[in-house]
Amino acid sequence: ILQTYRAIANYEKTSGSEMALSTGDVVEVVEKSESGWWFCQMKAKRGWIPASFLEPLDSPDETEDP
């Protein structure tokens, strides 16, 4: 089962193997590399994304803190 994550910042791809993101995009993580790059898919797009640009979809938003 794939894990679902949300983009927390815009990411512009710098090579053909990467995938561009916009803040709020929801992606499915296909593979996690120890290098800190994750292979993700979103609709018909697939590519590598730095893991630091993603957060788990089920994590609470910062605005929901008590």
Rank of each mutant, 00 (worst) to 15 (best):
I1A: 07
I1T: 12
L2I: 15
L2Q: 15
L2G: 15
L2N: 15
L2V: 13
Q3K: 15
Q3Y: 11
Q3P: 09
Q3M: 15
Q3F: 10
Q3G: 15
T4N: 13
T4V: 11
T4I: 11
T4Y: 13
Y5P: 01
Y5E: 02
Y5V: 04
Y5C: 11
R6S: 03
R6A: 03
A7Q: 00
I8M: 08
I8G: 03
A9P: 00
A9Q: 07
A9E: 09
A9D: 14
A9T: 14
N10H: 06
N10D: 14
N10R: 06
N10A: 09
N10L: 03
N10G: 06
Y11W: 11
Y11A: 02
Y11V: 07
Y11N: 03
E12S: 10
E12P: 10
E12L: 06
K13P: 12
K13I: 12
K13G: 10
K13L: 06
T14E: 07
T14F: 07
S15N: 14
S15P: 08
G16F: 09
S17A: 12
S17M: 11
S17F: 09
S17C: 09
S17L: 09
E18K: 05
E18N: 07
E18D: 13
M19E: 01
M19F: 04
M19V: 04
M19C: 03
M19R: 00
A20H: 06
A20C: 08
A20K: 10
L21P: 01
L21V: 07
S22P: 12
T23G: 05
T23F: 11
G24S: 02
G24D: 05
D25R: 00
D25L: 00
D25S: 03
D25C: 03
V26N: 04
V26G: 01
V26C: 07
V26R: 08
V26M: 08
V26A: 04
V27G: 00
E28W: 04
E28D: 07
E28F: 04
E28T: 10
V29G: 01
V29W: 00
V30G: 02
V30C: 07
V30I: 15
V30T: 10
E31S: 10
E31N: 08
E31H: 10
E31K: 11
E31M: 09
E31T: 10
K32Y: 06
K32R: 09
K32L: 02
K32A: 04
K32W: 02
S33V: 05
S33P: 04
S33M: 10
S33H: 13
S33W: 05
E34R: 09
S35R: 08
S35E: 04
G36I: 02
G36K: 05
G36P: 03
G36D: 06
G36C: 03
W37S: 05
W37C: 03
W37A: 04
W37M: 15
W38E: 00
W38R: 02
W38P: 00
F39M: 08
C40L: 00
C40G: 07
C40A: 09
Q41N: 05
Q41L: 05
Q41M: 06
Q41C: 07
M42Y: 09
M42P: 00
K43C: 07
K43G: 15
A44G: 14
A44H: 14
A44E: 15
K45Q: 14
K45M: 10
K45E: 14
K45W: 04
K45D: 14
K45Y: 06
R46F: 08
R46H: 10
R46N: 10
G47C: 03
W48P: 00
W48S: 02
I49H: 02
P50Q: 04
P50I: 01
P50R: 05
A51W: 05
A51Y: 07
S52G: 09
S52V: 09
S52H: 13
S52E: 12
F53Q: 08
F53H: 14
F53D: 01
F53E: 03
L54A: 02
L54W: 02
L54N: 01
E55L: 06
E55D: 04
P56I: 07
P56E: 10
L57D: 10
L57E: 09
D58Q: 08
D58V: 12
P60Y: 12
P60Q: 10
P60W: 08
P60M: 12
D61S: 14
D61A: 13
D61E: 14
D61N: 14
D61L: 13
E62F: 10
E62L: 12
T63K: 12
T63F: 12
T63E: 14
T63W: 09
E64N: 14
E64S: 13
E64T: 14
E64M: 11
D65L: 11
D65T: 13
D65K: 14
P66M: 06
P66C: 08
P66E: 07
P66V: 07
